[in-house]
Nucleic acid binder design. Structure first.
Lengths: 202, 202
DNA sequence: GTCTATATATCGATAGAC
DNA sequence: GTCTATCGATATATAGAC
């Protein structure tokens, strides 16, 4: 049964999303042609336009879903803690989820962190807003820990960015068949993050 | 007096390097056209070929000099310590130099960290070798600190990458007219790095 | 929904006058 | 060393047959 263009339920559209994601993450948006994407799905370039209006719409689709998945992954991890969890438990849950995502779904992570500049102005604004929300949710955990006296940081914003960026970097070097498992890497970075928010007052 | 093509001393070649660096760092290599680069220098695209053999040669030129400057910046910082410095002083000097470079020369830093994939295979191999040398020089400092008992890390390679990547991230958010000075940011990250290599044994 | 064929634009790079 | 003019390749996107 045929589907309307760009509908989420189309099997072909999902194949296009998957192929575009890998191409964009590996070679970059500009270096990935519609012909390449179509070829890896098994169709011709013109047929892509039955599913997406433009190449940029494909980029936005995969970018938005990647950022949505990242936030949902965080929400689930925090929800598992229950309402009474303190800042240390929240920070551990956030970092574990953050690093786990960047290891397990590194193609999506690399895409979000390297191809935002290729989005249209309108879509880029939305992506930046989603990124700011994600960043701010970590900032609020750190602020709560500082307020309760459980954390010590010289600058909460620097600590926020440092924790996020070292975790994001996992998507660059992690390999599924490497020396460390996802759980091992996640546990490592939880310890590193706790070290960052436990700075000596001196 | 005219210069031979691609010679380092040419004033026009330097203008091309500067213009290309900013274009590549801001818009990416593929999205930067030879016409754009030429226009910001005040010449036509064809005239660029009197100074560089190809667009990729320009990318390699600015990439190589950026990576060379980064390593030289590190060497100077370590040399200032003198021969008797211990791992803690070496780590502080490394991180201060690393973060200082990524704040002060963020265009060059962004270029190196985002456009390596657009280099030719031969040039990319050389760039990766330079990056590995840089990464390994930090790894050796951490290994020395672990061996002497001054550092405690769960995994030396993870600690190395975490320190490098959080410092590299400064090039993304730092603004010269922002809230923090380069020296303030450098001092912050020295403390964060020392926290990373002072993990509780538990 | 796929295909072939093509419109239209822009790219890197070259030729040759000055 | 700059320019104008242009080549040849490739890009996104569209038109219309099936």
């Amino acid at each position: 049964m045929p589907q309307a263009p760009s509908k989420a339920g189309s099997a072909t559209a999902d194949e296009i999303r998957q192929a575009a994601l890998e191409q964009f993450a590996q070679s970059g948006y500009d270096a990935s042609s519609m012909r390449d994407i179509a070829a890896s799905v098994g169709i011709k370039a013109a047929s892509l336009y039955n599913h997406f209006d433009s190449k940029e719409e494909i980029l936005w689709d995969v970018t938005r879903s990647a950022m949505s998945d990242l936030a949902a992954n965080r929400d689930e991890a925090l929800a598992r803690l229950g309402p009474g969890a303190g800042p240390r438990a929240q920070l551990a849950a956030f970092v574990s989820a953050h690093v786990g995502f960047h290891a397990e779904r590194r193609h999506q992570a690399v895409l979000v962190n390297s191809q935002l500049g290729s989005l249209s102005q309108s879509h880029r604004r939305k992506a930046v807003a989603l990124r700011d929300e994600y960043e701010n949710s970590l900032r609020m955990i750190i602020d709560a820990g500082v307020a309760s006296g459980e954390f010590n940081v010289f600058d909460a914003q620097v600590a926020t960015l440092a924790i996020l960026q070292m975790g994001t970097g996992v998507s660059v070097w992690f390999r599924p068949d490497g020396r460390l498992s996802i759980d091992q890497v996640g546990a490592q970075y939880v310890k590193l993050a706790l070290a960052v928010v436990s700075q000596q007052v001196r």
